[in-house]
């Protein structure tokens, strides 16, 4: 009897969740796709499937925002930020977390970086933009560099939590075998960091691909703009040509959605790992 009722509530629950998922999450996506595929004259019944699919919207948006250039910029920023974040931030976190108890210097470094997490970007952005133009890092290479450096507080926190769980006896054994700290890190520790590297890679990817504020204040030259920023910059020119605008939005969303479609389990798993560590 009880068992039967429980089955019934589970069925109701599944139904409610499915309706919510379709109505609240998938509906806006459907709308985006439909509008991107329609002709302007077909907009009276916005929600209906397009009478004629108009691929021209994509071609127009492609040319207007110069998609290949914006995509390349975003892609380069994301990939290089990701690679260098993993290579450099992990080594900093390793040195800090292995020596915090032994030396005050490393302990101070730990708290220095962690406390910087409380500084919102809006607080440093005015002086940073001045500094960036003096150092000539107000371009895609520079912003990549900034992502690698600005990720340090959060990543040090995540990596150290993970490194703590790797027994120090491994380091000691390698030392006895004659390995120096660099060799210990590259040969012993780094391979063991793979799950946390994956988590940090995902966070870095999401952050750099979707970021709007940093590109907005740092990348003023049109040739340097990212996909997100170009959607903002072209708002005026899209004006009420929603089909063109939505084709452009969809093209900006598509790479990350494809990535999610195929790596969904891996992404959710990686982010959960990071979230629990926090």
């Amino acid at each position: 009897m009880i068992r039967h009722r429980r089955k019934e509530t589970l069925r109701v629950r599944t139904l409610v969740l499915s309706v919510l998922a379709v109505g609240l999450i998938l509906f806006p996506l459907y709308l985006t796709i439909v509008i991107a595929l329609k002709e302007p004259s077909d907009m009276v019944q916005v929600l209906s499937w397009p009478k004629n699919i108009r691929w021209q919207n994509f071609a127009d948006a492609w040319n207007m925002v110069q998609y290949p250039q914006k995509f390349t910029n975003t892609f380069l920023i994301t990939i290089f930020a990701l690679i260098f974040t993993i290579l450099t931030n992990s080594i900093v976190a390793y040195a800090i977390s292995r020596n915090r108890k032994k030396s005050r210097f490393f302990n101070v470094m730990y708290y220095y970086l962690i406390s910087a997490m409380f500084i919102p970007f809006a607080v440093i952005m005015l002086p940073l933009v001045k500094l960036a133009s003096i150092l000539q890092i107000d371009n895609i290479a520079g912003i990549t560099f900034l992502y690698v450096v600005f990720g340090l507080p959060m990543n040090t926190f995540l990596y150290s939590g993970y490194i703590k769980s790797i027994p120090e006896s491994l380091d000691e054994a390698a030392t006895i075998d004659g390995a120096n700290p660099w060799q210990i890190f590259t040969k012993v520790i780094f391979p063991l960091l793979t799950p946390m590297n994956a988590t940090i890679a995902i966070f870095t990817f999401m952050w750099t691909w979707n970021d709007f504020l940093m590109p907005l204040v740092l990348l003023s030259k049109p040739t340097q703009q990212t996909l997100q920023l170009s959607q903002y910059v072209f708002q005026g020119q899209f004006s009420t040509d929603y089909n063109l605008a939505f084709a452009s939005y969809l093209m900006a969303l598509l790479p990350i959605m494809l990535f999610y479609l195929f790596g969904q389990k891996w992404i959710i798993g990686g982010i959960t790992k990071g979230a629990v560590k926090q």
């Binding site: 998922a21 691909w209 709007f212 959607q231 939505f246 939005y249 990350i256 959605m257 999610y260 959710i268």
Partner: peptide, 25 residues
Amino acid sequence: IKLKSTLRAIFFLPYILGNLIVGFV
């Protein structure tokens, strides 16, 4: 529940979409 991982994947989807474009839509 049935469809658990599919539902979870759908509800997590907004996280991966850029704030700006979601705002425009």
